[in-house]
Amino acid sequence: MAEEKEAAEAVVADLHKKITEAFDVFDHESNKTVDVREIGTIIRSLGCCPSEGELHDLLAEVEEEEPTGFIRFERFLPLMTKVLLERRYRPAPEDVLLRAFEVLDKQKRGYLTKEDLTKYMTLEGEPFTQDEMEEMMSAAVDPDKNLVLYKEYVSMLLVEDH
């Protein structure tokens, strides 16, 4: 029983360390607060992939009663620890990502054009912003072929599961 408790405490301590390190990157004033607009980036850097709606719900849990535009570490740490322990917002597995691209690639060519991908990502579902599209394209587009070779891109998207 004691060994299980020690193992659980070690897992939590490791998560606290990872969360603290991720938070500190954006704590520019070193005052244990970050801009509310950075929380999505912090959460995603920890291997979670919440939708915008889920991210909004998380923010509602950690924001002050009277929103200040900043999130305090002391409120973020317990919530993020719980999220990670529960393995919430896991990224899509490789086979699901590949199938999604294959559905878009109606001619089964193994690639999408930048224009096609932009159209799908900005007009369907939860649309990407211009900034999100630029960031995605910088990683997704093969510079030599000027195409999105999605099998290669999917392998870049995979998050190591620790």
Rank of each mutant, 00 (worst) to 15 (best):
M1Y: 08
M1Q: 13
A2V: 15
A2W: 02
K5T: 15
A7N: 12
A8W: 07
A8I: 07
A8R: 14
E9K: 12
V11D: 09
D14W: 12
D14G: 03
H16L: 10
K17S: 12
K17L: 12
K17R: 14
K18D: 14
K18E: 15
T20R: 14
A22K: 02
F23M: 02
D24Y: 07
D24H: 09
F26N: 03
D27K: 03
S30Q: 13
S30R: 10
N31R: 08
N31D: 15
N31E: 11
V34T: 08
V34P: 11
T41C: 01
T41F: 00
I43V: 15
S45V: 00
S45H: 00
L46T: 03
C49P: 03
C49K: 05
S51W: 03
E52C: 04
G53E: 15
G53H: 14
E54G: 07
E54Q: 13
H56F: 11
H56V: 06
D57A: 13
L58F: 04
L59G: 05
V62M: 05
E63Y: 06
P67R: 03
F70L: 09
F70N: 04
I71T: 05
F73D: 00
R75K: 14
F76M: 00
L79T: 11
L79Q: 09
L79M: 09
M80N: 04
M80V: 15
T81G: 02
T81A: 04
L85W: 02
R88Q: 10
R88A: 05
Y89W: 08
P91Y: 06
E94H: 02
F101C: 06
E102A: 13
V103A: 09
L104P: 03
L104R: 03
K108P: 00
R109D: 01
R109V: 03
G110H: 02
G110A: 02
Y111F: 13
L117M: 07
K119A: 13
Y120W: 12
M121W: 00
M121P: 00
T122R: 10
T122N: 11
E126Y: 00
P127D: 04
F128V: 08
F128W: 01
T129N: 05
Q130I: 13
D131Y: 09
D131I: 10
E135Y: 01
M137R: 05
M137Y: 00
S138M: 12
A139C: 11
A140Q: 02
V141L: 07
D144M: 11
Y150K: 04
Y153I: 06
Y153D: 07
V154C: 06
M156Q: 14
V159A: 06
E160Y: 10
H162R: 10
